[in-house]
Amino acid sequence: MYTQSFSVPDNAGQKSARTPSTENPELMAAFDARIDADGRIEPQDWMPEAYRKTLVRQISQHAHSEIVGMLPEGNWISRAPSLKRKAILIAKVQDEGGHGLYLYSAAETLGTSRDQMLEGLHSGKAKYSSIFNYPTLNWADVGVIGWLVDGAAIMNQIPLCRCSYGPYARAMVRVCKEESFHQRQGYEALLVMMQGTEAQRAMVQDAVNRLWWKCLAMFGPPDADSPNSAQGMRWGIKRISNDELRQKFIDATVPQAKVLGVTLPDPDLKWNEERQHHDYGQIDWQEFWNTVEGNGPCNKERLATRVKAHNDGQWVRDAALAYTRKQQQRAQKEAA
């Protein structure tokens, strides 16, 4: 899964960090030249503080999204209606955990520990993708999340495979492969349901109705309202604008919905011959910002569940540490 956070500051409303003028001009010039030449920045390379901060924020938000994103789908593991689907779902949720792991590791190369990042998530300071703050209410949500949410993630992340920061770009290559597998699996599950009973088809349509607009919002605010985008583009952290990605996603999804036999819940959605794109209706940005700011339908449950898992697991982590220390002491004694 992924995050729309590329243009969402952790403290929504605050001004984004600007490149401070105190950076060493020679180093700065070399960095800019590398970026202009489409070169990669690696962990040991010099980079401006603002670049580092922006990346830590973006990658950690992305990691948090993977981890929080395990919960809405995890909600259906115990009730999956066939063993095959249960196995696919466990594997998928597990993949998302793996994505979280690579991303935390990528962010750690920038000098921020996983504990620090988790502290940001648990205290509510760091954001994660707002799509995970909506409930999964029927089994088809699992398929629709795969098809649309992982689908939107791919649109957003493919350009990130060329991101200027090496570790992030490499993590994205691996993540994108798995996300496109998830998308195909989700779509396939929906195809089977749509060929099934009336009740199954109704589940799919219900899930699409609830999730469609939320998926469009995943690409972030319109370009006109995205103050971070320009700097992100300059730095090669963001490659394609929110609106462009959203349009690409809609254009790709409409024919898939047709094959599936579901209706996308937007009366204004239609092909525009002149633009060679689909026109679409108004996204409810008020609702989006409400959710980003913590007041969506499931924000509190999602966050409290992550915090509880972390706190409940404290003794397990402590035990592992204590055991390792004891082992080291024993080894030292033997060596002495």
Partner: peptide
């Protein structure tokens, strides 16, 4: 799933 004591254990 999603509630493990540490991410590696969740996986």
């Amino acid at each position: 799933c999603g509630h493990g004591p540490i991410l590696e254990e969740d996986i």
